[in-house]
């Protein structure tokens, strides 16, 4: 992940669906594409395109391809561990997804790629969805203050500290972990003595 962020403002749109799973976020057939080619075109591909591959003009992300906040119903990103679902959102330009709940693995993948999975209570999400029903809205989020302003309404949220710092600093875990190499080596020696069958002969 490259570079962190603290504030973000942009256009918010509603995707008023429950359980937008990872198979919908990016259908399996696109997952062999190298990341360098960009995953944006595949985001929600089968909702954005009809069976003949034609663009569905009324679909919200086709109307607003500059949106960077997506508001959805519960259980967003459930299903597969495919990080490609997050790549598709990020490469499309989405920076924040707001929903009452997210799949656990999806959330971890999101944070690892600079995408904020923002949990708001269901009632608040419904309120925001109602405001976004016909038109997109403006939104801004501040990770430092843990505040969201969307359609002129203010909300506070709380992120796990790990996520907040990762999003703000754009940490690369591998570098952080490498700094613990001596501890890992000591653990490994003990594990080897205690459970040698971890290393099959």
């Amino acid at each position: 992940m490259s570079g962190g962020w603290v504030h973000h403002s942009g256009k918010a749109v509603a995707l008023a669906l429950e359980s937008v799973d990872t198979d919908q976020l990016i259908p399996a057939r696109f997952m062999s594409v190298p990341r360098a080619q960009g995953y944006g075109p595949y985001l929600l591909h089968d909702l954005r395109h009809d069976g003949g591959g034609r663009v569905v003009p009324e679909f919200v992300l086709n109307q607003h391809n500059d949106a960077s906040f997506l508001v959805a119903r519960r259980n967003f990103g459930s299903g597969s561990s495919r990080e490609a679902a997050v790549y598709a959102l990020v490469d499309f330009g989405i920076r924040v997804v707001i929903a009452p709940s997210f799949g656990d693995i999806f959330s971890a993948n999101a944070v690892n790629n600079g995408l904020l999975p923002l949990v708001l209570p269901e009632a608040d999400v419904e309120r925001v969805l109602a405001m976004l029903l016909h038109d997109p809205g403006q939104a801004s989020v501040d990770l430092q203050a843990e505040t969201l302003c969307i359609c002129g309404q203010d909300f506070a949220f709380q992120l796990p500290q790990v996520w907040r710092e990762k999003l703000m600093n754009g940490w690369d875990d591998i570098d952080l972990t490498t700094a613990r190499t001596p501890q890992i080596a000591a653990y490994k020696t003990a594990r080897r003595a205690d459970t040698p069958w971890v290393w099959p002969s």
Binding site: M1, R82, E83, I105, A108, N109, V162, L176, I184
Partner: peptide
């Protein structure tokens, strides 16, 4: 438990993984 690609790269590189306790 299942993990995403960034975490897979981390496990490949370090044989460890950062996790919040569920």
């Amino acid at each position: 438990f299942g993990i995403g690609a960034t975490e897979v790269a981390h496990v490949l590189a370090t044989q460890t993984i950062w996790q919040m306790r569920p």
